[in-house]
Design a protein around this nucleic acid. Structure first.
Lengths: 191, 191
DNA sequence: CCGCTTGTTGGCAGCTTGTCAACAGTGGGT
DNA sequence: ACCCACTGTTGACAAGCTGCCAACAAGCGG
């Protein structure tokens, strides 16, 4: 059953991604604290010490995986400008929901919101920051308006919670979530 | 300096709360993974094995502390009914912000939103559920309207994120947060 | 074919958690 | 007042986990 593969010598980048993919696979099922480095190494088909060699520490590997997961594809938010101005908010919400649905399992597995761990929070906030940039520029709004950015970040909290209601609890269907988020988004963008 | 106090024999309930308080104190500063049972025991002035005796496992102790933290005082939400009907949402938001500000350090330390850990999430969701109950009944709305409940839970996600903008980043002041959340809450309540 | 660079590994040292038998307050019975 | 059972409390042990380091070997240049 357990074939011990011959010692493969890989390009460092390839090995890195192999390990990262394995980590994403495991963290998709269980939270950080319940996944040991031994398991991570086994899943990646690699010696445990190699994790430390590439990522330094177990936590660093987790943060890398998290960053990888939260990095949203750039192309998506470009075509909002073509929409009718009065429904750009709706189009933006559709974009949110599409990306969430696409990365469903991983997105939900990593949890929603901030963890209380400063380093983890930093990664999440970083991802939020770029998402705010993309959305505001796609909407043709001033991306340097700090209070506006803050309101959008607050709105993201609602996006996460609403996605959870939709995908996990099933208490809202997609049209309901869309309507809820769109109206909320409009109010957020105004004042 | 380090006085080794004589072995005190306490009522189990008293000892439990002593340990829980110590745990809350530590978890207010550092996340779960960075607090060892040795530290928890030292902070509580107790042998490490006693933690296991009372709570079984380190994780169980954490969950207890979390539940304790998230349990909101009941009295607060009762006086909403007296408000002018058209500003009940604003009064509810004030109530949110008061409780958040009151428990500031602990609330923020525990993080915002869900963690990906099923057990932790269960505790958080449980607390949310009772909060939804209190708010809806205080507003005179149907507390059994499941889609409405879902929308309020989604709104809570925004409350958390907005509180963070206010208390941690300082990107919004209290009036701004109040206005943002109030208008959003109104739209959430309508649909 | 040899040897060097470097990707890769096994094993060690320190620390953490859960368990268990033993210790010691505390109150009741004589 | 003494003893004894009850049980709150503790020290020590075993298993597991993480980070580190010296050693091994795969591939490439000579």
């Amino acid at each position: 059953m357990t074939e011990l593969a011959a010692r493969r010598r890989l390009d460092p980048d390839a090995r890195r991604t192999e390990i990262l993919d394995a980590a994403l696979r495991l963290y998709a099922e269980r939270p950080y604290g319940e996944v040991s480095t031994t398991e991570l190494a086994r899943e990646a088909g690699v010696a445990r010490a190699l994790l430390n060699h590439y990522f330094g520490t177990k936590r660093a590997l987790y943060l890398e995986a998290l960053r990888e997961l939260l990095t949203i594809p750039e192309q998506a938010a470009t075509d909002l400008a073509g929409q009718r101005p009065d429904d750009r908010a709706g189009a933006a919400v559709d974009w949110f929901l599409d990306t969430v649905e696409d990365r469903r399992s991983l997105w939900l597995s990593v949890g929603i919101g901030l963890s209380g761990d400063p380093e983890v929070d930093a990664v999440v906030e970083d991802a939020d920051e770029t998402a705010v940039d993309r959305v505001l520029t796609a909407l043709g709004r001033d991306a340097c308006d700090e209070p506006l950015r803050a309101r959008v970040r607050a709105f993201f909290g609602m996006v996460r919670a609403a996605s959870r209601e939709w995908l996990v609890r099933g208490s809202l269907d997609r049209p309901a979530v869309r309507k809820l988020l769109t109206t909320a988004f409009v109010t957020v963008l105004e004042d």
